[in-house]
Computed example of a mutant assay.
Amino acid sequence: MNASSEFSSHAAPELGVGGSLWLQSGQQMLGGATRIALLAAIGATGSITGAAKAVGMSYKGAWDAIDAMNNLAGEPLVERATGGKGGGGTTLTARALRLIDTWSAIEREHRRFIERAAAAASVLGGADCAQTFDSDLALLGRLGLRTSARNQLYGTVTTIVRGAVNDEVSIALPGGQKVVAVVTCESTQTLGLAEGVAAVALVKASSVVLLAGEEVSAMRLSARNQLAGAIGQVRRGAVNAEVTLDLPGGTVIAAIVTDASVDALGLAPGAQACAVFKASSVILGVSG
């Protein structure tokens, strides 16, 4: 079980406190309020279609969530019956019913915690304090993210180009450069991606290609992401090296290249280079 709190300020100068709650199975997220609400709706309606409609999900999105929860729980939470006098239906297992009850109890305690945190924060007051807490707690939430992707690039969604199957999402980084990702239309909806939403772009270091010297200006590439910066560090290994590139605004991106490439490209601290990777190599995430 994990809980995260988020401070936010609106038109009023008072400091506000909000929070989100989710459950984990091992190191994987089992579900938050939406998934638990889906389980509860299945129990109430006995129908995936009805439950999906009740929580604002697509039919496919509901089944994807159910499959994920079943897998992460290590046992079925939802069972689908076919045939019979009633024509079949969908039911919750005893484990799912206990999970809903457990969630309700935890949610009550979480709500009490938020109320206490709000009372404590209110004594600080002031718009400046609100902005400081908003920034600090957003950063703490990002620091808690654990992923195997070496590169975690934080920014704000600027544009979304809609497609029939996939959407192209652009995220502005702090230094003004952008990262482009191609995700499914359903992922755009599920993540709540829209202009102005804060998001993180995850990119494996092995997916990043480095260009240096004359290559930077001479080559024309189909890869949508081309981030220019200066080499920060070069950590050599027996065969490969990890090279970090410092981008404007303080963002750092890492690439794994061979030692031979480090020598051939003249990759050394301070040298100018460009990190290149495909939009399809980018995974997007949002907090909450």
Rank of each mutant, 00 (worst) to 15 (best):
Q27I: 10
G89T: 07
L15I: 15
V182L: 12
R235A: 15
V55W: 04
T184M: 06
G56D: 07
A238L: 11
N225I: 00
V17Y: 01
F277M: 02
T158P: 04
V252W: 04
Q28V: 13
Q27N: 11
A117W: 07
G74C: 05
A52R: 03
V262D: 06
G43K: 01
S261A: 10
G32T: 07
T188E: 05
A238G: 11
F7T: 10
G87L: 08
F7L: 06
A275H: 02
G270V: 03
A230M: 08
L221W: 04
L137S: 09
G155D: 06
K60P: 07
T190Q: 15
E107W: 08
Q24W: 11
I42A: 04
V276I: 10
S20R: 13
A138G: 05
M29A: 14
I106C: 07
A37L: 02
D134I: 08
L267H: 07
A230T: 09
R80I: 12
G31P: 02
Y59S: 13
A62G: 02
R98W: 12
V183T: 10
W22I: 06
R236F: 05
L191H: 02
G232W: 01
E242S: 09
E6C: 11
A218N: 12
S122Y: 11
L77N: 04
A223H: 00
E75G: 03
V165E: 09
T188A: 06
A68L: 14
R111V: 12
